[in-house]
Every structure is written in structure tokens, then in C-alpha cells.
């Protein structure tokens, strides 16, 4: 599903954020990217939906080399990739329902599809009945659920999560992880950057560990260390 070949990313010609990264992620896998801040986890994620392009190497997503993809095709690539962030990135002037519907609206999905898919995904993330609240009326965990709903409403092949539990207390974070696990079980590939040791150890999934831009460990059913 995702394949990186000798990917190197250098910012401003001097800071090496990634060096010679190579790995494969199969369809339906759940992968943790771990490592301290600045180790290149976020850069890796941003490579996978072409928010960044590498100086060297190739990034393959769903069988296509996305660095050689023309700009006009990038929106279609991104429709197959959901994104979740530490700070949720919700639109504060829109209700929960509008936030989720927005993702479908701006890619031109017809109204009847939106009417059908938004309530379904709200049920999935456990927010049924809160569609008309605004983000500031929700707890942090609930806001992250909205952002997961927005990322998943279009049924993407891949979900990229950048520190999704970073702002949440442990109990709430575990709830989010259970939700991501359920989404993964539907066949969606999940790649999650985190430095939340407890969660990585609890889930026992594949772990790719980064240190100063270099992959230092790639272990199936790994722990944080």
C-alpha cells in the first residue's frame, strides 16, 4: 500500500530530516512511527500524502510513485488518505456535522451521499446525537473523534495520524486508540506517529523507530523501548 525507497529529505539545503528511509507497509497494516521530537516522524507522514517531496528516493502509494504524479492528480490521491492531527484542525465556526460534511462537500459529493454517510460515521466514532454542537462545546477526546470522523467519512484506504493522543489524558487516549483499531479492522491502513510509550506497548503493533532522520528499528508486534 505504501512503499518508501531510499527516501532522503533535506530542509533548506542543510537540515537532514530523513536519511535513506526504506520500508513497506502492507494493506490493512497498523504501524507506529516512534521516536523523539524532531526525529522525522511527521516528515515521513507528510511524504505519504505529498505535502513534502523528497530530495532523493521514491514514495509509492497504492501502486503509484506519488512524487512523479502531476500536481493536478494530487487532490485525487488525497481523497484516498485521511489525516488526523494532535490539534484536531476542526473549523471552529462550523458544527460537528458541518465539519464532517465539509470534507465531502469540497470534493463534490452529492447531497444525498452526504446525508447518508455523515450520520453513519458519527455512529461509528460514537458521537451520535452531538451533530449540532460546536467544537468548543466538546471535550478534547470528542473533538478528536470529530476529526477522525472527518478523516474517515470518505472511506479512505489509508489513515495518517500525527500524535492523535498527544493532547489527551490517558483514558481518553485509549478510547481513541480503540476507535483507530476498529477502523483498521475494516481494512484501512493506519500509520500513526506518536511518542506515547504506554499506548504503543498496549497495542503491540508494528513499530518503526526513528532517530535523527534514520530508521533504527522496524519490528513487528513491537514495544516502544
Amino acid at each position: 500500500m505504501i512503499r518508501l525507497e531510499n527516501v532522503t529529505k533535506i530542509y533548506n539545503g542543510q537540515v537532514t530530516a530523513l536519511r535513506d528511509a526504506t520500508f513497506d507497509i502492507a494493506k490493512g497494516e497498523f504501524v507506529f512511527l516512534v521516536g523523539p521530537s524532531g526525529s522525522g516522524k511527521s516528515t515521513l507522514l507528510r511524504m505519504m500524502n505529498r505535502q513534502e517531496r523528497p530530495e532523493k528516493g521514491a514514495v509509492w502509494v497504492a501502486g503509484r510513485n506519488i512524487n512523479e504524479m502531476p500536481d493536478s492528480k494530487v487532490p485525487h490521491l488525497r481523497r484516498n488518505i485521511g489525516n488526523i492531527f494532535q490539534d484536531y484542525k476542526l473549523l471552529l465556526n462550523k458544527t460537528v456535522h458541518e465539519n464532517v460534511a465539509f470534507a465531502l462537500e469540497v470534493i463534490g459529493r452529492p447531497k444525498h451521499v452526504i446525508r447518508q454517510q455523515v450520520p453513519a460515521v458519527m455512529d461509528l466514532v460514537g458521537l451520535a446525537g452531538k451533530q449540532d454542537r460546536f467544537p468548543h462545546q466538546l471535550s478534547g477526546g470528542e473533538q478528536q473523534r470529530v476529526s477522525i470522523a472527518r478523516a474517515f467519512v470518505n472511506r479512505p484506504l489509508i489513515l495518517l495520524a500525527d500524535e492523535p493522543t498527544g493532547n489527551l489524558d490517558p483514558g481518553t487516549g485509549e478510547g481513541i486508540m480503540r476507535l483507530l483499531d476498529r477502523i483498521n479492522k475494516t481494512g484501512t491502513t493506519v500509520v500513526m506517529a506518536t511518542h506515547d510509550q504506554r499506548i504503543v506497548n498496549m497495542m503491540r503493533k508494528r513499530v518503526i523507530q526513528m532517530d535523527r532522520g534514520i530508521i533504527v528499528r522496524d519490528q513487528a508486534r513491537g514495544v516502544y523501548e
Binding site: 500536481d71 487532490p75 490521491l77 484542525k89
Partner: peptide
């Protein structure tokens, strides 16, 4: 930013 991430085209 959200629009670009969910795959809205630049023209849109």
C-alpha cells in the same frame, strides 16, 4: 488547509 488535505482541487 483542511480543504487541501481532504483533496479539494485548487480550482475548487
Amino acid at each position: 488547509e483542511v480543504m487541501k488535505l481532504v483533496g479539494a482541487t485548487n480550482w475548487f
